[in-house]
Amino acid sequence: TIDEIIKALEQAVKDNKPIQVGNYTVTSADEAEKLAKKLKKEY
């Protein structure tokens, strides 16, 4: 679900690790936030 994706992003940001979500690779908190907002609009 979208919530699980967002939790995974938040965890990756805390661990400061890049995370791959679908076609996106998120490497920073800023990118994670942008991706989360984008995904919320889509779903």
Rank of each mutant, 00 (worst) to 15 (best):
A29H: 04
K14P: 02
A32V: 04
E10W: 15
E33P: 00
K37V: 09
D30V: 12
Q20C: 14
Q11T: 06
A8M: 14
L35M: 05
E31K: 01
D30M: 11
K14G: 04
I2M: 08
T1S: 11
I6T: 02
K41R: 13
E10Q: 10
Q20L: 07
G22T: 03
D15V: 05
V26F: 06
L39T: 00
K37R: 14
K40L: 13
P18I: 07
A32N: 00
Y24E: 03
I2H: 05
N23S: 13
E31M: 08
N23W: 08
A32Q: 02
G22M: 07
E42L: 15
D15F: 13
A32L: 08
S28F: 03
E31T: 02
Q20P: 02
K34W: 15
E10N: 07
S28W: 05
K37N: 13
A12N: 03
P18Q: 05
V21R: 00
V26I: 13
Y43T: 06
L9A: 01
D30R: 08
A12S: 05
E42Q: 14
Q11G: 06
N16Q: 07
V21M: 05
Q20V: 13
I6E: 00
L39M: 04
Y24Q: 04
K14E: 05
L9D: 02
K37S: 11
N16M: 07
V13P: 02
I2C: 14
K37M: 14
I2R: 04
K17M: 14
N23P: 15
D15S: 09
I19G: 04
A29I: 08
T27N: 14
V13S: 08
E42P: 05
E4V: 06
K17N: 06
L39K: 01
V13D: 01
K41V: 09
V26N: 01
P18A: 09
D3V: 12
D30W: 14
I6H: 01
K14N: 06
E4F: 11
K17I: 11
E42M: 15
S28A: 03
N23F: 06
A36N: 01
T25A: 08
T1K: 08
K34I: 11
T27V: 11
V21D: 01
D30H: 09
E31R: 00
E42T: 10
N16S: 05
V21F: 11
T25M: 12
T27L: 14
N23E: 14
A32S: 02
K40W: 13
T25I: 14
K40R: 15
A29Y: 04
E10R: 09
K38A: 10
E31D: 08
P18L: 06
V26S: 03
G22K: 03
A36F: 12
T27S: 14
A8R: 10
I6F: 06
K7D: 04
E33W: 13
Y43P: 04
P18E: 04
A32M: 05
I5S: 00
V13M: 14
Y24W: 11
E10H: 06
P18Y: 05
Q20G: 03
A29C: 09
A32T: 00
N16T: 04
A8K: 08
I19Y: 06
K7W: 14
N23V: 10
Q11V: 05
E10Y: 15
P18S: 10
K37I: 13
V26T: 04
D3R: 11
E31W: 03
E10I: 12
A12E: 01
K34V: 11
D3G: 09
Y43M: 12
G22V: 02
I5Q: 02
D30P: 04
K41C: 13
I2W: 12
T1M: 10
K14F: 14
T25L: 14
A36P: 00
E31Q: 08
V26R: 00
L35D: 00
K34G: 06
E10L: 14
P18C: 14
K14I: 13
N16P: 03
Q11L: 09
I6W: 04
K37Y: 08
E10C: 14
Q11A: 09
L35K: 00
Y43G: 06
A36R: 10
A8E: 05
G22S: 04
L39Y: 07
K7I: 07
T25E: 07
K7A: 13
Y24K: 03
T25C: 15
I5G: 00
E4A: 10
E10F: 14
I19K: 03
K17D: 01
A36D: 00
E42K: 14
Y24S: 02
L9N: 01
Y43E: 05
N16H: 07
D15G: 06
T1N: 09
K34F: 13
V21W: 10
A8S: 07
K14R: 13
L9Q: 01
K14A: 09
E4R: 07
Q11I: 05
K37A: 14
T27E: 11
A36L: 15
I5N: 01
D3C: 15
A32C: 03
K34T: 11
Q11W: 06
K38I: 09
L35H: 00
A29T: 06
T27W: 15
T25N: 10
E33Q: 12
K40H: 09
T25D: 06
Q20N: 10
K40F: 10
I19D: 01
Q11S: 07
E4S: 08
K40M: 13
G22W: 13
I6N: 01
K38Q: 11
A32K: 03
E42Y: 13
K7P: 01
I19M: 09
A36K: 04
E33C: 14
A12D: 00
E4H: 06
L9R: 00
T25W: 15
A8W: 12
K7L: 10
T25K: 07
G22R: 03
A29E: 04
S28M: 03
K7M: 11
A8Y: 07
L9K: 00
V21Q: 01
D30I: 12
D3E: 14
Y24D: 02
P18F: 08
K34C: 15
I5V: 08
Y43K: 09
Q20F: 07
K7R: 13
K17G: 04
A8H: 02
A12Q: 02
E10T: 09
K38H: 09
V21I: 15
K17L: 13
K34D: 09
S28I: 03
V21Y: 08
K41S: 13
L9W: 02
T27Q: 11
V13R: 06
K7H: 10
Q11C: 04
K17F: 15
D3K: 11
I2E: 01
T1I: 08
E42R: 14
K40Y: 10
K7F: 11
A29S: 10
T27G: 10
V21A: 03
E10A: 08
S28L: 02
E31I: 04
Y43L: 12
E10D: 06
D3Y: 15
K37Q: 14
T1F: 13
S28G: 13
K17C: 06
E42G: 08
V21E: 02
V13C: 08
K41E: 12
T1Y: 12
K34Y: 12
T1V: 06
K14M: 11
Y43V: 07
K40V: 08
K41T: 12
A8V: 08
L39I: 05
K41Y: 10
V21T: 03
Q20Y: 05
I19T: 10
I2D: 02
T25S: 10
A29K: 07
G22D: 05
K38L: 14
K40T: 07
A36I: 15
P18N: 03
L9T: 00
D30K: 10
I6M: 07
D15W: 11
A12P: 01
S28Q: 02
L35W: 07
Q20T: 14
L39H: 00
Y43I: 10
D15M: 11
A8P: 00
I5H: 02
K37P: 00
Y43H: 09
K40Q: 11
K38N: 03
A12I: 09
D15N: 09
D30Q: 12
V21N: 02
I2Q: 01
S28N: 14
Q20H: 10
V26Y: 05
Y24H: 06
E33V: 09
T1R: 10
Y24F: 12
S28K: 00
Q11E: 07
I6L: 12
L39R: 02
V21S: 01
K7S: 08
A12Y: 14
G22Q: 04
N23L: 08
T1D: 09
A32I: 06
N16E: 05
K7T: 06
K38P: 01
D30F: 13
L35P: 00
L35R: 00
A36E: 01
D15T: 09
V26G: 03
E31S: 02
K34S: 11
D15Y: 13
A12C: 12
K38D: 05
G22L: 09
I19H: 02
K7N: 05
V26P: 02
E4P: 03
N23R: 09
I2A: 04
L9V: 03
A12M: 14
Y24C: 13
G22C: 15
E42V: 12
P18R: 05
V21K: 00
K38R: 13
E4L: 10
E10K: 07
I19S: 02
K34N: 08
K37F: 08
T1H: 09
A12V: 11
V13Q: 06
T25Y: 15
I5W: 10
I19P: 02
E4I: 07
K17A: 06
L9Y: 01
L39S: 00
